[in-house]
Every structure is written in structure tokens, then in C-alpha cells.
Amino acid sequence: MTGDGAPSMPPRRAPRGRAVALGVTMLTLILAALAPPTMAQDLERVPRATRNVTPPGILPGPAVDGPLYREPTPPAPPQPPKWRRFFLPRTTDGATFITKEGLTIKVYGVAPPAVDQTCQRADGETWPCGRTALFSLRMFLRGRAVECFLPPLDGIDRAIAPCRVGQIDVGWWLLSQGWATPDDNATDDYRTAAREARCERVGMWRGAEPDPDCPAVQPAPPS
């Protein structure tokens, strides 16, 4: 059971598939786009040779009319993203961490409710689902370290990244518990977890009208 009485879902290992691969691809494209092009004025100009130093028996190189430039040493390739661990991050909503270093990390693939958001039950009663989602995430963490898949952090103060606690994918957990909805970057696994949570009416969907696309609930067998 969750802290608010909603049934718990079984833990799931953090996927190293589509979400991580998509995150790596996006980070690689961003880093490549930021690399400045080499301009002619940035190259070192080399003085033309004043005499022929070609060894005997070797054909001299072709004559060059224009100026000579020395190609600069290419920069080292950027370090690839990796899982980076953060201890006791501060949580500001149901899917956002702020680390001790001041880095704000939003969990990839999910959209949490705003902290002040309310939800409505089928009987018309409203309840603070946004604050409950934040409280549920804090109860899930229980002081454990959070790992997020990130590039080198130099000059970065905000990021969107897949995150995990142990082997549990935080994004998948939020969706399977009904404390977030999938965003445009969500994988098929994420969308399936969100649909199952809504059909089972857990988390934000507790007490709500059943979705018409969900399978009918079978009555319990007589005892």
C-alpha cells in the first residue's frame, strides 16, 4: 500500500532502453550543435619555406599559391552522459529534484501535477492531489540517493533526465502509482504504466469516474 492508502505496484528495474537511448541521442545532438566551427582567421598562418628541403630521390610537394595554415589540434570529444548520484536532493513537486549543488532535475518522460492542484472524486469531493503526489515521492525516496543519467555538469543548472532509485525507474514508478501523466517524450512502457494506473484508479485517479476505455471491473466472487 502507498502512504495514502492506494495499492502499491511491484517495483520495476530501471530501463536502459528507449528512454536512456533517446536521452543520449538528444544530449549528443545538443553538444554537437554547441561546438563552434573552425574559421580561417582562427588558424595559425605558417610562413612559406624559403628553400627546397626534399631529400634526394623524392619528388617535391606540389607548389601552393595561397597562404599556408597549420590545422589546430582537434578538441577532445565531449564526455558521454553517465549515471550520476545525488544524496538527499530536495523535492519541489512530484517529479523534480534540486541537488545540493543547485542543479534542478526534472524526471524525463513525465508531467507531475502542480503542488497546488486539486483532483475531484466521482462524488464531487475535491482533494489536494498535487501535495499528495509530492508527499508520496518523498515517502518513496525515504532518504535514499537518486541517480540521474546526465552529461558533465559544468555550466548546467537545469536538466531533464531519466532517474532511478536503486534499480527502480522513478518515471515509471510515478506513472504506475498514478502520481504523474506521460509527456510527449514518454516511451510506450511509460504510457502503458500510466493507463494501467488510471484504469485501476490509483494515485490522482483515486475515486474518479472509470475511463470508458478501461476494461470492466469484474465483480468479486461470492464467498
Rank of each mutant, 00 (worst) to 15 (best):
G178M: 02
A197W: 13
T132C: 00
G57K: 09
P219K: 07
W173A: 08
R90V: 11
D154C: 00
M204G: 08
T96C: 05
V53D: 13
P56F: 02
R138I: 04
R198N: 11
P215T: 06
D188R: 15
T104H: 03
P222D: 11
E147K: 01
A111E: 15
T187A: 08
G166Y: 04
T73E: 15
F140R: 15
Y108Q: 14
T2M: 14
E209C: 01
P55L: 09
P215N: 05
C163K: 01
R164N: 00
I156V: 15
R48V: 05
M204H: 04
P60C: 09
M39N: 06
T99E: 07
T25I: 05
T54V: 04
T25G: 13
A21N: 13
V46M: 13
C148H: 01
G166A: 03
P36H: 11
R13W: 08
D42T: 10
M39Y: 08
G102Q: 10
A208Q: 15
A63Q: 13
R206W: 14
P11Q: 03
W173Y: 04
A76Q: 12
Q41I: 10
P36L: 11
T25S: 15
N185W: 10
R131I: 00
F87W: 04
Q41G: 04
L31P: 00
W179L: 12
A161Y: 01
P72Q: 11
I30E: 14
A180F: 11
R70Y: 01
W173E: 05
R191M: 07
M26R: 15
T92L: 06
L153Y: 03
N185F: 10
S136H: 14
P55C: 06
R138Q: 14
F86D: 02
C148Q: 03
L34A: 15
T91E: 11
C119Y: 02
C199K: 10
K100E: 13
D93L: 01
T92R: 04
D211P: 00
P11C: 01
R121C: 06
V165G: 02
P47V: 04
I160K: 09
L68R: 11
Q41N: 13
P37H: 10
T92D: 02
R195V: 09
D93Y: 07
